[in-house]
Amino acid sequence: MPVATTIEDKLRQAFAPEALELIDESERHRGHGGWREGGETHFRLRMTAAAFAGQGRVARQRAVNKVLAEELAGPVHALAMELRAPGEA
Results as ranks from 00 to 15, higher is better:
A59G: 05
F52W: 02
E37Y: 11
R60Y: 12
E37K: 12
A50Y: 06
G38E: 01
R36N: 07
H29D: 15
G56N: 11
R60D: 09
R30L: 06
V64L: 07
A49M: 11
G38I: 03
R62T: 14
V58R: 09
N65T: 12
A50V: 10
H32D: 13
G56I: 05
Q55M: 15
F43I: 05
G39Y: 00
H32S: 13
F52N: 00
N65G: 11
G39R: 00
N65S: 13
G54K: 08
A49I: 07
A50G: 11
V58C: 07
G54M: 09
L45I: 11
G34F: 00
V64P: 04
R44V: 09
H29G: 13
A51N: 04
A49C: 15
L45Q: 09
G34A: 03
R30I: 07
M47S: 08
R36W: 04
G33Y: 11
G38Y: 02
G33H: 13
R60I: 12
A50S: 13
H32R: 14
R57I: 10
E40N: 04
A63P: 03
F52Y: 04
V58S: 06
W35L: 01
G54C: 04
N65D: 14
L45A: 07
G54T: 06
T41Y: 00
R57A: 14
G34K: 00
A50R: 11
G54S: 10
A63C: 04
R57P: 09
V58E: 06
A51F: 02
N65Q: 14
W35Q: 02
A51P: 00
E40Q: 10
R44K: 14
G39N: 00
R60A: 10
L45N: 03
R57M: 12
V58I: 11
A59V: 06
A59Y: 02
